[in-house]
């Protein structure tokens, strides 16, 4: 990994709130052109990490560099290269669409009016509509339009899905996908709705209790994790979560067991609980793997 390819570099990040240590030495990097997902349960340290990345928190120890500069001391040039989407799609609500474009144009010489116009056309609202009079989903489109039009090379998107229904979440990612792929942008994205990002991110880092639990390409996150459905009449009382059995869920039709056991191993393991033919493997989703790795609480 050369310096020029590393856009975001987080090393040895530590931070506490009072006596509670939230980050205990976080390390990860984001390479140029990659779409990087940052995942973690509530309280894992995700928000703290994002705040440090966005430069609104100075860590106790460690470094967070973006384009080689500390995230809390970015130069104007680098600020213009980085687009931030704040949690809740924060924008200047008191502005209209027209005013928003006029305002941001003043700061970004490379403002792409066509890109902004494209999004506005998709939005289908009059230019004099104030952002505060739009729905959550519409606001997210405006926020994305600003990020795209400002020509940012790197995007940090904090919980893009907040407040959005399934339709808008999908639309958001569709737009993002289109522009990211075409322009080789680097993205760091988080979301509480993990399964949305399965179709989007290249690499993921899962943090748990302030440390990196796993950092790998998305395809490899699920490596070695298998899912099996057992009928509801299976006696699973004695099955406990351990290094092999990662998670047990119940749906209205079956038990779903996430495990590190292969099919053969699982048939032996579940002998006595149910018949082999009742053990039905299924494709583990990213969300399943995430819950299995981090636990349900």
């Amino acid at each position: 990994m050369s310096f020029n390819n590393t856009i975001i570099s987080v090393s040895g990040l530590e931070h506490s709130y009072g006596s509670a240590k939230v980050l205990k030495g976080l390390n990860f990097t984001v390479e140029k052109g990659k779409i990087f997902g940052l995942f973690g349960k509530n309280g894992a340290g995700k928000t703290t990490t994002i705040n440090i990345l966005m430069g609104f928190l100075t860590p106790e120890k460690g470094d967070c560099l973006i384009y080689g500069e500390k995230s809390s001391q970015l130069s104007n040039e680098n600020k213009s290269r980085i687009g931030l989407l704040h949690e809740g799609h924060i924008s200047y609500d008191f502005m209209t669409l027209e005013q928003t474009e006029k305002f941001y144009k003043g700061f970004f010489p490379k403002w792409e009016s066509k890109t902004f116009a494209y999004f506005m056309e998709k939005l289908g609202l009059p230019k004099n509509r104030k952002i505060k009079h739009m729905s959550c989903g519409q606001r997210s489109q405006v926020a994305l339009a600003v990020l795209m039009a400002q020509g940012a090379e790197t995007l940090i998107l904090d919980d893009f899905s907040m407040g959005l229904d399934a339709g808008y979440r999908r639309l958001f990612l569709d737009h993002l996908n289109q522009f990211v792929k075409d322009n080789n942008k680097t993205i760091l994205i988080t979301s509480h709705i993990v399964q949305d990002l399965e179709r989007f991110v290249d690499e993921a880092v899962i943090i748990n209790k302030g440390q990196v639990l796993l950092s790998a390409p998305l395809s490899k996150i699920k490596d070695g994790i298998y899912g099996y459905r057992l009928p509801l009449n299976a006696d699973i009382k004695n099955i406990k979560k351990d290094k092999r059995i990662l998670d047990i869920s119940i749906t209205k039709e079956s038990y779903e067991i996430i495990t590190r056991l292969t099919l053969e191993e699982s048939k032996k393991y579940f002998q006595g609980i149910t018949l082999s033919e009742n053990i039905i493997p299924y494709n583990v989703s990213f969300e399943d793997a995430f819950i299995a790795l981090t636990g349900k609480y």
């Binding site: 506490s16 709130y17 009072g18 703290t48 705040n51 609104f56 928190l57």
Partner: peptide, 8 residues
């Protein structure tokens, strides 16, 4: 004293 910050 408690080193609390804004982000709690």
């Amino acid at each position: 004293f408690k080193k609390d910050t804004l982000w709690e």
